[in-house]
């Protein structure tokens, strides 16, 4: 694969990662742009022959983490997902809202591994490199994070889901 093709495919991956992090398409593209500007400035530090994807993801991750403004954008944008067209989509949307809300309650260290792996763009070792943690630490954070996410969602329970569904219906 040529460098040009490889880079283009990574840009798509970066946009997916940025969208899950920011929950807003405009903020996601801003984050990708900021990432690319930084990558251009740091191009001389890239080791040819090493994997480009974790390098780019690491820049995006660090940019996001260091940019506190995005926390506000994410909170505001969480309720602005595309309108569903079917009941099945409505349920999925509500579930997604619930999972994203639960994800926000997790510490950063557990949230990032869950998001990175859910994108299915890289294996555990690459994802660990992206987050700059040892593989064992990454695996432990991923496992603990997944279980904590489940507990939080379960804690919301059927009652809360029903309220969310009613709210969702009221927004139509």
């Amino acid at each position: 694969m040529s460098l040009k093709t490889e880079l283009h495919s990574h840009i798509g991956s970066l946009r997916r990662y940025a969208l899950v992090l920011t929950r807003d398409p405009v903020a996601a593209d801003d984050l990708v742009q900021e990432t690319l500007v930084k990558a251009i400035a740091k191009a001389d530090t890239f080791q040819p022959g090493s994997d480009l994807r974790p390098w780019l993801f690491r820049i995006l991750h660090n940019t996001f983490v260091s940019d506190l403004r995005r926390a506000k954008t994410r909170a505001e944008a969480a309720a602005e997902m595309p309108e569903p067209v079917s009941t099945e989509c409505q349920d999925t949307r509500l579930e997604l809202k619930q999972v994203l809300a639960a994800l926000d309650q997790l510490p950063e260290a557990q949230r990032m591994p869950i998001i990175l792996i859910s994108l299915r763009e890289m294996n555990y070792a690459e994802a660990a490199r992206t987050l700059d943690v040892p593989l064992g630490t990454f695996m432990s954070r991923l496992g603990r994070g997944r279980e904590a996410l489940r507990k939080i969602v379960q804690g919301v329970g059927v009652g809360k889901l029903a309220i969310l569904k009613r709210k969702g219906g009221g927004e139509q």
């Binding site: 997916r16 990662y17 969208l19 996410l149």
Partner: peptide
């Protein structure tokens, strides 16, 4: 939950392409 997050990430593929990103991509 993993599938839900994955599907949400894929919605980025429907986002309109950005000229600014394309230009930065070429430069990089």
């Amino acid at each position: 939950f993993d599938n839900l997050l994955h599907q949400y990430g894929r919605t980025a593929d429907e986002m309109p392409s950005s000229l600014k990103i394309a230009s930065l991509e070429r430069e990089l």
